[in-house]
Write a protein that binds this DNA or RNA. Structure first.
Length: 704
DNA sequence: GGGCAGGTTCAGT
DNA sequence: TTCCAACTGAACCTGCCC
């Protein structure tokens, strides 16, 4: 294979070493056209050189180079017949992809110009015309266009930005402000496409096909009008791109930034011409690593070259990757409007001064667990995969994950499992710890977590719809019930005794571990991290696995029996109610709402801001999600009533009502899921087995 | 060997 | 003076099971 043109020669490397130090800042951003790139690169290099961060960057670079070398070697080994074969594969695939081309939709991508910085300037006009960045000395989120002239940009450390531009003004981030302005822009977007897709606070995709047709206006006119409207409402400018698909619309919105727009006509010729010379890095999904690989291995720098080297791409990449690259070469992208996207994971992470003080690290982990638990409870989420992210003092990033059998959301559960993951890595000097929970209840069938459902379940069990107590770990209380109701709804609610006992056992296991942890925490603060632990909890990293049965042995058997009976009884009466009580949904709703509860109209008024966003929790549900909205409303209603009502009998009555509804909803989802799922899938089989808990640690093969 | 689930990394904002 | 973020979705890789 030919060598990549982008790679500097060895001699150039030694004379101008900064040229080979590629950072994210190497990729040009809007407003940086006149920047002295070499000067910026040199400054960044000089500021970074010798630091641990720099060393890690070099390690990463070396790894990518190694990968490139390996791929080149694989390319070199391809025989003439191999190459001919893969070329045929590519040609066939290109034809198939071409057949999917849809030019019937008109997509508009709106991108607010230097959003955070613009909002701050609006708030404080004295910043106008002066170089300014939002963020701090460690990292900046965005920079205004005056600052960009100096090479300052988002994702750049503040101390480097200041070196590039000594006059730079730093403004701390204020997400409340940005959310407020973001909501204003979304009000405007909704007028043009009620189902618009918000990509972030400052970006959105709109399908403007209908509005163009209805008003007999060109896409350019609509884009112009929308941008004017956004400016009138917010005082902020935005840029827009119009194209037949979202991938291209995104590229187009960057072309005339700031405060401009670009329309790519909806015909194949225009698309192919546009895409032909487009650098691959402009495409969403192609980042620094992929760019290096494509350039280094195949000499691919423009989208057009994706097609020219299609045979090699098919030979060396997976089908899905090759398809993506070929699609890029053809200028294809998504044209459909996806259903409401639910969150798939929730996480938090914190950077701090690097430390190997175990006590301090435990403390950080406890804080993160607490924060994550609060965030999850706010959204009514529980998940069963916990990922621990670590960044060592030398900037090496590791992640370690564990998937539990039960869904968790309490601080104690999170901390319990996080500690096990962390302990397997210690001793270690760390500068960042992060926790992430994924695999939310229900998400494997494509219907991502509906907070209402879970929280309602919690409400039924604990009588606390806020979830506040639900996740508190108690031996006999909510958590046990939790495990019962958090079980995938596709499992019938009539629970097999044996299975119930099994779950209970695990809960007890966790409870015991938890008490160990509490003990640890207690000692932590008193003994500077020297933890006295009589049980199996690993503390020095030497024990990688917790032996469940050893710990289960600590739990009194009577508790297990009691709990299993408790759950069983609950589930029986619950199922029984649902079987004997399936009244008409609407009728039941109306009856319920008669009890001094807001009417449907009132509900709409107080709950759905702009007809799509819940005013109470912020969750977004479009108007056509009638049932989901109803359930969501019920949740808030339950929450409200729970607070107001002290009368236990009334609570009981409501609990029964919502039990019915929750079960009906579960059944509906269950039905939907079944219809979309292959019979006798392995996952179902696996779940029915309820394999013993729970932990297995996998070391990553490659870390940076 | 295909399908699937779990774990890790990349990329975007 | 300050010394490289936080969060999320999705692709990719690997190992296991049938």
């Amino acid at each position: 294979m030919e060598k990549a043109e982008a790679e500097p020669s060895a001699s150039a490397d030694s004379a101008r070493p900064w040229q080979s130090y590629t950072t994210v800042y190497t990729n040009a951003k809007a407003g940086m056209d006149g920047v002295d790139k070499e000067k910026v690169q040199r400054t960044v290099y000089e500021m970074s050189k010798g630091s641990k961060y720099f060393e890690n960057e070099e390690r990463k670079e070396a790894f990518i180079r190694q990968k490139i070398d390996n791929m080149r070697a694989r390319c070199a080994k391809l025989s003439a017949s191999d190459i001919s074969h893969y070329q045929m594969v590519a040609d066939k695939r290109i034809l198939e992809l071409e057949a999917t081309r849809d030019l019937s939709r008109i997509w508009l991508h709106v991108d607010m110009d230097a959003f955070y910085a613009a909002v701050e300037t609006l708030d404080n006009p004295s910043l106008r015309g002066r170089p300014m960045a939002v963020g701090g000395m460690s990292m900046i989120s965005t920079a205004n266009y005056e600052a960009r002239k100096f090479g300052v940009r988002a994702a750049m450390p503040g101390f480097i930005a200041r070196k590039l531009c000594p006059e730079l003004i730093f403004v701390p981030t204020d997400f409340k402000k940005y959310t407020y302005y973001s909501d204003l822009t979304r009000k405007v977007f909704q007028k043009y496409d009620p189902n618009f897709m918000a990509a972030s606070l400052d970006e959105a995709y709109l399908d403007i096909t209908e509005v163009c047709n209805e008003r007999d206006l060109t896409s350019g006119e609509i884009a112009e009008e929308l941008r004017t409207s956004v400016h009138e409402v917010t005082g902020l400018t935005c840029s827009a791109g119009v194209a037949p698909n979202r991938l291209l619309a995104k590229v187009c919105s960057d072309i005339n930034k700031p405060n401009g727009q670009f329309v790519l006509p909806s015909n194949r010729m225009a698309v192919m011409t546009f895409i032909s010379s487009l650098p691959i890095r402009k495409i969403g999904g192609i980042g620094k690593v992929t760019e290096h690989i494509l350039s280094g291995v195949f000499g691919i720098n423009t989208c057009e070259e994706m097609l020219q080297k299609g045979g090699f791409l098919c030979a060396l990449f997976s089908r899905s990757s090759a398809d993506f690259f070929l699609s890029v070469g053809l200028g294809l992208g998504k044209t459909d409007t996806p259903q409401v996207r639910f969150r798939k994971s929730i996480s938090n992470e914190r950077t701090f001064s690097a430390t190997d003080d175990t006590a301090l690290l435990y403390q950080k982990l406890a804080e993160l667990s607490e924060m994550l638990s609060i965030d999850m409870q706010k959204e009514g989420l529980s998940g069963r995969t916990l990922t621990l992210k670590l960044k060592t003092a030398s900037f090496e990033v590791r992640s370690r994950a564990v998937t539990m059998q039960k869904y968790i959301c309490s601080r104690e559960d999170i901390l319990n499992h996080a500690l096990k993951l962390l302990n397997a890595e210690l001793p270690l000097s760390l500068r960042l710890i992060g926790l992430r929970i994924s695999h939310f209840n229900e998400d494997k069938d494509g219907h991502l977590s509906d907070p209402t459902q879970k929280t309602l379940a919690n409400f039924i069990i604990s009588g606390d719809a806020s979830g506040k107590n639900v996740c508190e770990h108690s031996l006999l209380g909510s958590d046990t019930s939790d495990s019962h109701f958090m079980v995938d709804p596709e499992n019938d609610l009539s629970i097999d005794n044996h299975e119930t006992c099994h779950y209970v056992s695990e809960d007890l296991l966790d409870s015991n571990l938890l008490s160990d942890l509490d003990h640890c925490n207690f000692n932590l603060s008193n003994n500077s991290g020297k933890i006295d632990n009589n049980n199996e909890l690993p503390l020095n990293g030497s024990v990688a696995k917790v032996n469940a049965p050893n710990v289960v042995g600590c739990a009194p058997k009577s508790h297990q029996i009691k709990v299993s009976h408790l759950v069983e009884a609950d589930s029986f009466s619950f199922s029984e109610q649902c079987e004997s009580n399936r009244p008409d949904r609407a009728r039941r709703t109306n009856n319920d709402l008669d009890d001094g509860v807001p009417s449907s109209n009132q509900k709409e008024q107080f709950l759905w801001v702009n007809d799509y966003k819940c005013s109470l929790c912020g969750i977004e549900l479009p108007p056509n999600f009638v049932e989901e909205r109803q359930e969501h409303f019920d949740f808030h209603l339950a929450e409200k009533l729970q607070k107001e009502e002290s009368d236990n009998s009334r609570n009981l009555m409501l609990n029964q009502r919502f039990s019915q509804r929750d079960h009906t909803a579960s059944q509906r989802r269950h039905k939907r899921h079944k219809s979309s799922k292959k019979e006798g899938s392995k996952s179902s089989q696996k779940e029915s087995k309820h394999l013993p808990i729970d932990m297995f640690f996998v070391k990553s093969n490659q870390n940076f």
